[in-house]
Simulated scan of single mutants.
Amino acid sequence: MDETSETRQAALAYVESLENRDWPRLTTLLADDVVYEMPQTRERIRGRPAFLRFNTDYPGDWHLRVRRLLADGRAAALWLDVVVGADALEACVWLDVDEHGLISRITDHWPEPYEPPPGREHLVERWSA
């Protein structure tokens, strides 16, 4: 399998794992030192355990559907339809995949900047605007 196909498969498996709350599968897709960033909230999470905890603890009912996926080499871009409770949103997610086929960086872009909800301070670091 070539690099781009491997990256595309990793991106689809990432979204499917999140949507299905399949945490064991998600664990197998992530590099130990994965970095997750949300520029709109200026939050960064470092490491697989913290990223998994962030997702398992995330409140509410949320769902993801891939609208479009582009992969090139070890990078992928996803355009997602996101439903959180009664709110329908769109998000763009950039993924970097390392030489072992593991996701090493995730950057979530949401439509508008916002202040993060309380309760995840122990998992994230924030940077200045």
Score class of each variant (00 low, 15 high):
118 P>G: 09
69 L>M: 09
40 Q>N: 13
77 A>G: 03
33 D>R: 06
101 G>R: 08
97 V>Q: 05
90 E>T: 08
57 D>W: 13
33 D>T: 07
84 V>D: 03
62 W>D: 02
51 F>K: 00
48 R>E: 11
94 W>Q: 14
60 G>T: 01
91 A>E: 15
60 G>F: 08
14 Y>A: 01
106 I>G: 06
34 V>D: 03
117 P>N: 07
92 C>N: 13
95 L>T: 01
59 P>R: 12
98 D>Q: 08
99 E>G: 11
97 V>H: 07
53 R>Y: 02
110 W>F: 13
53 R>V: 02
81 D>E: 14
99 E>D: 15
62 W>A: 03
1 M>E: 12
8 R>T: 07
55 N>Q: 13
58 Y>V: 01
67 R>P: 00
119 G>R: 05
23 W>M: 03
39 P>L: 06
74 R>H: 12
79 W>R: 01
88 A>D: 15
22 D>I: 02
52 L>R: 06
114 Y>G: 05
27 T>R: 10
45 I>W: 02
72 D>C: 08
28 T>R: 13
74 R>Y: 10
74 R>P: 01
88 A>E: 15
12 L>T: 05
19 E>S: 09
19 E>Q: 14
64 L>I: 04
79 W>L: 06
27 T>V: 00
128 S>T: 14
2 D>L: 07
106 I>H: 14
126 R>P: 00
112 E>K: 01
77 A>F: 05
92 C>R: 10
23 W>R: 04
112 E>S: 04
129 A>S: 14
77 A>L: 06
109 H>T: 07
49 P>F: 12
73 G>Q: 05
86 A>K: 12
63 H>I: 03
26 L>S: 05
91 A>W: 13
29 L>I: 01
52 L>M: 08
53 R>D: 12
123 L>F: 07
129 A>R: 13
8 R>L: 13
116 P>Q: 11
60 G>K: 02
20 N>I: 02
119 G>T: 06
109 H>W: 15
21 R>K: 11
58 Y>F: 15
12 L>K: 09
13 A>N: 11
33 D>S: 07
64 L>M: 10
43 E>C: 14
61 D>T: 13
15 V>D: 05
114 Y>N: 04
87 D>Y: 09
73 G>C: 08
89 L>Y: 09
7 T>N: 10
98 D>Y: 10
84 V>M: 01
64 L>G: 05
90 E>P: 00
104 S>F: 04
31 A>L: 08
37 E>L: 07
23 W>Q: 03
105 R>C: 09
124 V>L: 09
39 P>R: 06
27 T>W: 11
112 E>R: 02
128 S>I: 08
100 H>Q: 15
7 T>P: 01
82 V>C: 08
85 G>T: 02
104 S>V: 04
94 W>R: 09
26 L>W: 10
89 L>H: 13
72 D>M: 04
57 D>F: 09
112 E>Q: 04
1 M>K: 09
113 P>R: 04
49 P>T: 02
13 A>E: 15
63 H>C: 05
21 R>T: 04
16 E>I: 00
90 E>N: 07
117 P>K: 07
69 L>D: 05
111 P>F: 12
40 Q>L: 06
60 G>Y: 11
38 M>Q: 01
100 H>P: 00
74 R>V: 00
124 V>C: 09
69 L>F: 08
55 N>E: 11
8 R>E: 15
99 E>W: 11
105 R>G: 09
117 P>F: 14
